[in-house]
């Protein structure tokens, strides 16, 4: 059986908020190392890969592999009944028809319990190769969100270019063009504001802003975001969570002019 207790319901609420635009139904794969999820959007352009390590829960128990097939819209409806600060416990039997969610408020005088029906989801699983990315950019997640939003007003696509000058986000549309350049920046007192650029070779790739905007819904999960790029491979956008848990998005590049 599965029993996984989260100190704050906010984590699961934010995870669901972050992925439900991309994916409507998916399996939460539970095993003794934690709860994972991998799903592609309908158009097979973007993929979300999330893993909440067992250390992110206290306690965590999962005796055997269990796939919880969940409709994220339905899960979100149930999670709306949880306050951000509530303690959230997920429970399921070994071959479950439902997942049980319990929300306890901080003063433990209110306990809400919901059963969410599960579904059989036959999901394609992609092997993501380990990649030595040519460029890795870490920046405040709010900054990435702002760049994505601002450029979305101009164009459907953005070209992310990384060279020894730094990183630039450029787009061109009917009304004109825009370009945002970021340079390395270190703030010892506020490391969340740092911009770090590590590059082994120059990279320039074009991506659909619509999907980047979707990824940015995860901004509330982490103060920093990491963009990993290599020429001619999908972009990885990673939001690191506590205890080595993570939510990663992959986006296939656009090609040609």
């Amino acid at each position: 059986m599965l029993e996984a207790r989260l100190e704050q319901a906010a984590l699961l609420k934010k995870v669901v908020d972050a992925i439900k635009e991309l994916v409507q139904e998916c399996n939460f794969d539970c095993n003794d190392s934690g709860i994972g999820l991998q799903a592609m959007d309908n158009s097979h352009v973007a993929l979300v890969s999330m893993f909440l390590k067992s250390e992110s829960f206290s306690p965590f128990r999962c005796d055997r592999n269990i796939a919880l097939g969940i409709n994220l819209n339905a899960l979100q409806k149930v999670l709306r009944a949880a306050q951000n600060e509530d303690i959230l416990t997920l429970k399921a039997e070994d071959a479950p028809d439902v997942v049980n969610l319990v929300f306890e408020n901080a003063t433990a005088d209110r306990i809400s319990e919901y059963d969410l029906k599960l579904m059989d989801i036959d999901q394609e699983h992609l092997g993501i190769p380990d990649t030595d990315y040519a460029a890795q950019i870490s920046m405040p997640s709010s900054e990435f969100q702002r760049i994505t939003r601002d450029l979305s007003a101009i164009s459907e696509s953005v070209t992310i270019e990384c060279n020894k000058e730094g990183v630039s986000f450029a787009c061109e549309g009917d009304i004109g063009k825009g370009n945002i350049k970021l340079r390395q920046y270190t703030n010892v007192d506020k490391p969340a504001e740092n911009v770090e650029v590590n590059m082994t070779e120059p990279v320039a790739l074009t991506f659909a802003l619509k999907y980047l905007g979707n990824f940015c819904k995860a901004s509330g999960l982490s103060e920093q975001v990491r963009l990993c790029l290599s020429n001619e491979v999908p972009l990885m956008v990673e939001y690191a969570l506590a205890n080595n848990s993570y939510i990663r998005f992959y986006l296939a590049p656009k090609i040609g002019d």
Binding site: A46, L47, L126, G127, V233, P234, A252
Partner: peptide, 14 residues
């Protein structure tokens, strides 16, 4: 207009 690639061109089904 650039053409959108498909992810399955890069990642193999397992």
């Amino acid at each position: 207009t650039p053409i959108q690639n498909d992810l399955s061109e890069f990642f193999v089904m397992v």
